[in-house]
Design a protein around this nucleic acid. Structure first.
Lengths: 156, 156
DNA sequence: ATGAAAATTGAATATTTATGCAATTTTAGC
DNA sequence: GCTAAAATTGCATAAATATTCAATTTTCAT
């Protein structure tokens, strides 16, 4: 279901271009854009987008995207490297193994390094295999979620 | 009553040095520092300090001071200039008149310029008098509040 | 010092935001 | 296509934060 991704994009635009200070307002705007959801869902969307609420320097607060929200062009291409090479990822305890297309392990591994996922402590690559060590306290679910949100976000 | 200012400073330190994600936690920490207030007061304090709540880049949120929170050393000395010279400030409509000790108008005016208060559109200085024009939409209350929060904050 | 205006605060409450849970939809593997 | 696991969502509600109002304290001009 691509629905949610579309909605997330629209939310991002709305937040970037308007001074919005509560979810109900944003909900209204979303409705006008053709997205009818509840406040609960919106709250989750905002969390997923890592939207913050910061002072307008005077007496109010408004939503704002994280600074590093823009994915730099170079970063985009690294994401492409990952997508192009990756085949599967599996775990055993704190370790993960990524299988890639032959010869792609290095580019994927390097790209992951650049993306600096907080869940990954370190990784090394062979020819079609990458070993990953999770950072203490992190779980494979954390990493997979991170992947989910970092990697798919490349359309455009 | 200097009480509140002390408290604001402590809050600022706590926020700067810890990953705090709700007011009750902060309330606890404040209690340990010797400040017993209610959540209502704390909420007001945070607003006054223009504290925001931003994503930790993963799954949580925490309080954060506005970027320009740090008062640079030079800025500190300008604040001193203001305090050293200023005698009174009064308003008439969109205009303000600051009286200073003889010969101090220029240093105060220059300092105000450096501080770049959003409420001030412009100002010119004589020998012991400064004229100020408020920015459109701003009131003398806004400016005085700005003074209140910017100027007293200099101990240390 | 004295009184009026402004500032500060707490208690109660309103408003805003997050989440547990169950229902529904989507995704993936066979 | 069929089924199990995962994702998405709404509803109800919990949790977090802001604000109203009244009381108290402080400031400031006489």
């Amino acid at each position: 279901m691509r629905e949610r991704h579309n909605r997330l994009s629209v939310i991002k635009e709305l937040i970037k271009n308007n001074r919005i200070d509560n979810q109900d307002t944003l909900l209204e705007m979303l409705k006008k854009e053709g997205f009818s959801v509840t406040q609960a869902t919106l709250s989750r969307d905002l969390k997923m987008l890592k939207v913050g609420k910061i002072s307008d320097g005077w007496s109010g607060y408004y939503y704002s995207l994280p600074e590093n929200d823009f994915i730099s062009e170079s970063e985009k291409s690294y994401i492409q490297d990952v997508r192009r090479g990756i085949i599967s990822i599996e775990f055993s305890g704190d370790m993960g193994v990524i299988k890639t297309r032959p010869g792609h392990a290095n580019s994927v591994c390097f790209a992951l390094d650049v993306l600096a996922l907080p869940e990954i402590l370190g990784s090394i690559a062979g020819d079609d295999t990458i070993f990953i060590i999770l950072r203490e306290g992190m779980t494979k679910e954390d990493l997979l979620e991170s992947f989910q949100t970092r990697i798919p976000e490349i359309k455009d």
